[in-house]
Amino acid sequence: MATTDFKDYYSVLGVARSASGDDIKQAFRRLARKYHPDMNPGDKVAEGRFKEVSEAYEVLSDTDKRRKYDQFGKYWKQMGQPSGGGTGWPGGAGMGFEDAEFGRFNTFEEFVNDLLGRFNTPGSGSPGGNSGYSSYRPPSGSSGFGFNDFANGTTGSSKGRSPQSLDREANLTLTLSEAFHGVEKRLSITGETIDVRIPAGVTPGKKVRLRGKGQSNPYATQQRGDLYLVIDLQDHSFFTLDEDNLICEVPLAPDEAVLGTQLEVPTPDGLVKVNVPAGVRSGQSLRLRGKGWPTKNGRGDQMVRLVITPPKSLTPTEQDYYEKLRDSRSYDPRSTLQGITL
């Protein structure tokens, strides 16, 4: 691979080399949302940028990988020059421990694959079209996928682990329905196909642990770390999740808000009749107890936010009645504003 193939991951994310972890995370989130295939269907340029952004984040978000990447820039300039080991990697007399790690790879491709911990996701030939296979973020729309080292290997430790953690993380994107009901996903990790059961009621940021599915120890092939699937949820057209509660908005006509009415509101369990009292305000919420997100102790609540929505067009009869109401109205909604000064 030519030196021109080198990617400056800091430039890809638009951050300085001294950027903090939070700066890198914020830059990635902004760019990932901008270039995500779901936001740019059929746009190959955006898809390519999304891959670059994801690859950059995979490296720079991890302390150990970022350190290796910063050090590797020095070695990249020497690629292709003769070395003491005859492999094309920098080496020779005086080679230290870090240099010796590079020496166990035959090619640059092997080094990058190890650095990023690549594995493939079958059925991801197009955004969202995973044919029953897992949908990951970052889902690149191609077969390539990388995942991050689990931070410092402080979770899921096991006996005999090497100083460098073998645990890995990957973001698994679910629909709200999949997360609510639970789902089985089929994953392909470096050619190994496994089935994983995602329990009902998982929430964003929840980690599902797959024991023994992390990276293999290159010095002890029988030893493998764990893979942690970090849950992310797709947006839903009606529901949003707030801790254990489901939030939704239901429009009301002005006369319904004044006189009160009965509504049929969608819930995860089907339509439920809700009585709206007379005189509700726009933005006021009604609580449906036990209709929210699954928890260990049952279900959260569903909050129905009422939004008074005036009609965009009126028939002549409606226009006439609204004008009569205006002319005969005794209530002044702005009476409390009189006399207010600063």
Rank of each mutant, 00 (worst) to 15 (best):
A200I: 00
T4R: 10
G290N: 13
V183R: 05
R49F: 12
T317V: 01
G42Q: 04
R281I: 03
P41R: 02
K207Q: 13
L325S: 12
G205N: 09
T155L: 07
L31F: 11
S282D: 04
S177Q: 10
M303C: 04
I24F: 08
L187R: 05
C248L: 15
A253M: 11
A46Q: 07
Y75P: 03
R66C: 09
K207F: 05
G156L: 03
E264I: 02
S131Q: 10
S330Y: 07
L314R: 12
S18Y: 02
K185H: 02
K273N: 11
N148H: 10
G290S: 08
K159I: 06
Q223M: 05
E109N: 07
C248Y: 01
D23N: 11
L116C: 04
H36P: 02
R118E: 03
K74I: 03
G260T: 07
Q164K: 12
P122Q: 12
V250L: 02
G283I: 06
D43V: 12
P333S: 00
A100C: 03
Y35H: 09
A32D: 13
T63M: 09
A56E: 03
P333H: 09
G339H: 00
Y35E: 00
Y136D: 07
L337T: 08
Y69S: 08
D70H: 13
L259H: 13
R168P: 01
R197T: 15
T203S: 14
R66M: 12
G103R: 04
V59W: 00
Q26C: 00
E101K: 11
F102L: 14
V112F: 09
D320S: 13
R33I: 10
A200E: 07
A253T: 10
D332N: 15
N40A: 13
R329C: 14
L286E: 05
G260R: 07
S188H: 03
E109C: 03
Q164F: 12
F180S: 05
V45H: 08
P268A: 12
L166V: 04
G156R: 02
R168C: 06
